[in-house]
Amino acid sequence: NITNLCPFDEVFNATRFASVYAWNRKRISNCVADYSVLYNFAPFFAFKCYGVSPTKLNDLCFTNVYADSFVIRGNEVSQIAPGQTGNIADYNYKLPDDFTGCVIAWNSNKLDSKVGGNYNYLYRLFRKSNLKPFERDISTEIYQAGNKPCNGVAGFNCYFPLRSYGFRPTYGVGHQPYRVVVLSFELLHAPATVCGPKKST
């Protein structure tokens, strides 16, 4: 009989979020998941679920829940969905086509923008091939755009693969920082350890 609540607040209220190319993952297990707390949290810009209804989450049990978190621009949030393409979905964070879970995003301009620009948040701009679902690539190898080998030196046709967002408070909404948490639900042939409040007695 599990009684402790799942530590969703640790994920959602973290002081610093990860850059999207180096997205953070927390495994959540052996706890009671009260999703209504999240669902009623006012400032969400997006709360979209795939393969599961957000209002039914509290009735369900899962083997594991993974909480992935990172920061992207407002106009990139739409790429955090199954079957998407674009710089983020291709080179930074890719969801599987059969994704079961929820994508939760909110504007973090007050936290993550600075006058003069916040350059701490990076994304991958160049990559030889697209990421596989949930693949994480933190390499900083110089990207070779031409035929000539770069030998690890940036220059003509040789690019550092990461780019900084440089968030400023005055940017338009599409270019403002958004914090994103992706909850993915794993249902294995194993005992369920993460259940909603109704199922955990």
Results as ranks from 00 to 15, higher is better:
residue 78 S to K: 13
residue 89 A to H: 05
residue 44 F to C: 06
residue 171 Y to T: 04
residue 188 L to I: 12
residue 167 F to D: 00
residue 80 I to E: 00
residue 47 F to K: 09
residue 173 V to H: 12
residue 16 R to E: 14
residue 109 N to R: 09
residue 82 P to W: 02
residue 124 R to F: 00
residue 182 V to H: 01
residue 53 S to K: 14
residue 50 Y to M: 03
residue 93 Y to T: 00
residue 61 C to S: 11
residue 142 I to C: 04
residue 12 F to M: 12
residue 38 L to H: 04
residue 51 G to V: 05
residue 5 L to M: 12
residue 115 V to F: 10
residue 168 R to V: 01
residue 128 K to F: 07
residue 124 R to D: 00
residue 92 N to I: 01
residue 34 D to P: 07
residue 108 S to Y: 02
residue 60 L to G: 08
residue 82 P to L: 03
residue 158 C to N: 02
residue 103 V to H: 00
residue 89 A to K: 02
residue 125 L to W: 15
residue 171 Y to R: 00
residue 113 S to F: 02
residue 153 V to C: 09
residue 107 N to K: 06
residue 98 D to Y: 09
residue 130 N to H: 14
residue 56 K to W: 06
residue 150 C to W: 02
residue 155 G to R: 06
residue 75 N to S: 15
residue 195 C to D: 11
residue 134 F to H: 10
residue 21 Y to T: 06
residue 51 G to Q: 09
residue 182 V to C: 05
residue 16 R to C: 09
residue 198 K to P: 13
residue 190 A to V: 12
residue 6 C to L: 05
residue 20 V to F: 02
residue 7 P to V: 10
residue 38 L to W: 09
residue 95 L to N: 01
residue 66 Y to W: 12
residue 38 L to F: 09
residue 137 D to Q: 03
residue 160 F to N: 14
residue 17 F to C: 04
residue 108 S to Q: 02
residue 20 V to A: 08
residue 186 E to R: 09
residue 151 N to H: 13
residue 17 F to M: 07
residue 144 Q to M: 09
residue 199 K to V: 14
residue 125 L to M: 12
residue 195 C to H: 11
residue 120 N to R: 11
residue 191 P to H: 13
residue 126 F to G: 03
residue 22 A to F: 08
residue 127 R to Q: 03
residue 133 P to G: 09
residue 52 V to Y: 09
residue 178 Y to V: 15
residue 55 T to A: 14
residue 95 L to M: 09
residue 135 E to P: 02
residue 76 E to S: 08
residue 98 D to C: 07
residue 41 F to L: 14
residue 9 D to R: 12
residue 157 N to Q: 02
residue 45 F to N: 15
residue 6 C to R: 05
residue 108 S to T: 12
residue 25 R to E: 01
residue 49 C to L: 02
residue 79 Q to Y: 04
residue 183 L to V: 07
residue 155 G to V: 03
residue 198 K to W: 12
residue 173 V to W: 13
residue 86 G to D: 01
residue 155 G to W: 05
residue 77 V to K: 06
residue 86 G to P: 01
residue 168 R to M: 05
residue 102 C to Y: 03
residue 21 Y to I: 06
residue 55 T to V: 11
residue 122 L to R: 13
residue 4 N to K: 14
residue 28 I to E: 01
residue 29 S to Y: 10
residue 73 R to K: 15
residue 22 A to Y: 09
residue 137 D to N: 03
residue 63 T to E: 14
residue 128 K to I: 08
residue 160 F to M: 14
residue 100 T to N: 10
residue 56 K to T: 12
residue 187 L to C: 14
residue 104 I to M: 12
residue 124 R to K: 04
residue 90 D to I: 05
residue 81 A to H: 05
residue 168 R to Q: 06
residue 144 Q to L: 04
residue 31 C to S: 06
residue 66 Y to H: 08
residue 36 S to C: 05
residue 165 Y to M: 05
residue 105 A to Q: 05
residue 77 V to S: 00
residue 58 N to C: 08
residue 93 Y to R: 02
residue 78 S to W: 08
residue 183 L to E: 00
residue 92 N to Q: 01
residue 170 T to M: 06
residue 163 R to V: 15
residue 154 A to L: 07
residue 182 V to F: 00
residue 145 A to F: 03
residue 95 L to H: 00
residue 112 D to H: 02
residue 118 N to M: 06
residue 113 S to C: 03
residue 37 V to A: 14
residue 99 F to D: 00
residue 67 A to M: 13
residue 100 T to K: 13
residue 103 V to N: 00
residue 134 F to K: 06
residue 195 C to Y: 11
residue 187 L to Y: 10
residue 90 D to M: 09
residue 141 E to M: 10
residue 119 Y to H: 10
residue 80 I to Y: 00
residue 82 P to S: 03
residue 192 A to C: 11
residue 154 A to D: 11
residue 148 K to Q: 13
residue 136 R to Y: 06
residue 132 K to H: 11
residue 39 Y to S: 14
residue 161 P to F: 03
residue 41 F to K: 13
residue 77 V to Q: 05
residue 23 W to A: 02
residue 105 A to L: 05
residue 105 A to I: 09
residue 89 A to C: 06
residue 50 Y to D: 00
residue 126 F to T: 04
residue 76 E to R: 03
residue 46 A to F: 10
residue 4 N to I: 08
residue 18 A to R: 07
residue 150 C to H: 01
residue 123 Y to E: 05
residue 5 L to K: 14
residue 13 N to S: 07
residue 174 G to S: 10
residue 55 T to F: 10
residue 48 K to A: 07
residue 181 V to P: 00
residue 64 N to H: 14
residue 165 Y to W: 03
residue 175 H to E: 06
residue 120 N to P: 05
residue 123 Y to W: 10
residue 200 S to N: 14
residue 68 D to S: 03
residue 6 C to F: 06
residue 21 Y to S: 06
residue 124 R to W: 01
residue 34 D to I: 05
residue 162 L to K: 03
residue 10 E to F: 06
residue 186 E to H: 11
residue 177 P to T: 01
residue 37 V to Y: 15
residue 90 D to C: 08
residue 110 K to F: 07
residue 170 T to L: 03
residue 197 P to R: 15
residue 175 H to F: 12
residue 28 I to C: 07
residue 131 L to Y: 03
residue 64 N to T: 15
residue 188 L to P: 11
residue 101 G to S: 01
residue 68 D to Q: 03
residue 143 Y to Q: 03
residue 8 F to H: 04
residue 143 Y to E: 02
residue 136 R to D: 02
residue 7 P to W: 07
residue 26 K to H: 09
residue 130 N to R: 15
residue 87 N to D: 06
residue 11 V to T: 05
residue 80 I to K: 01
residue 110 K to H: 13
residue 120 N to G: 14
residue 141 E to Y: 09
residue 96 P to G: 09
residue 92 N to G: 03
residue 13 N to A: 08
residue 104 I to A: 08
residue 127 R to I: 01
residue 100 T to E: 07
residue 137 D to V: 04
residue 94 K to C: 05
residue 116 G to S: 13
residue 94 K to D: 01
residue 150 C to G: 00
residue 114 K to R: 12
residue 135 E to F: 06
residue 51 G to H: 11
residue 42 A to P: 09
residue 115 V to A: 11
residue 63 T to R: 13
residue 174 G to I: 04
residue 76 E to G: 05
residue 85 T to A: 10
residue 77 V to W: 05
residue 143 Y to A: 03
residue 183 L to M: 09
residue 8 F to N: 04
residue 178 Y to G: 01
residue 129 S to W: 09
residue 79 Q to I: 01
residue 198 K to Y: 13
residue 9 D to S: 13
residue 22 A to L: 07
residue 134 F to L: 09
residue 46 A to N: 13
residue 79 Q to T: 04
residue 186 E to K: 10
residue 130 N to T: 14
residue 91 Y to W: 07
residue 78 S to V: 09
residue 187 L to G: 14
residue 93 Y to E: 00
residue 70 F to Y: 03
residue 126 F to W: 09
residue 42 A to W: 09
residue 151 N to C: 09
residue 15 T to A: 11
residue 9 D to T: 14
residue 48 K to S: 08
residue 118 N to E: 09
residue 83 G to F: 10
residue 189 H to A: 14
residue 193 T to Y: 12
residue 149 P to W: 08
residue 145 A to M: 06
residue 80 I to T: 02
residue 140 T to D: 14
residue 181 V to G: 01
residue 131 L to C: 04
residue 35 Y to L: 14
residue 116 G to E: 13
residue 190 A to I: 10
residue 1 N to D: 12
residue 148 K to D: 11
residue 28 I to P: 01
residue 78 S to R: 12
residue 13 N to D: 07
residue 10 E to L: 08
residue 73 R to Q: 15
residue 121 Y to T: 05
residue 17 F to D: 02
residue 102 C to I: 07
residue 87 N to F: 15
residue 177 P to R: 03
residue 184 S to H: 15
residue 137 D to T: 03
residue 158 C to G: 02
residue 8 F to G: 04
residue 82 P to C: 01
residue 196 G to V: 11
residue 35 Y to G: 08
residue 165 Y to E: 00
residue 105 A to W: 11
residue 5 L to V: 14
residue 23 W to S: 02
residue 25 R to V: 02
residue 93 Y to V: 02
residue 87 N to L: 15
residue 79 Q to G: 03
residue 133 P to R: 05
residue 55 T to K: 13
residue 193 T to V: 11
residue 198 K to D: 13
residue 1 N to H: 11
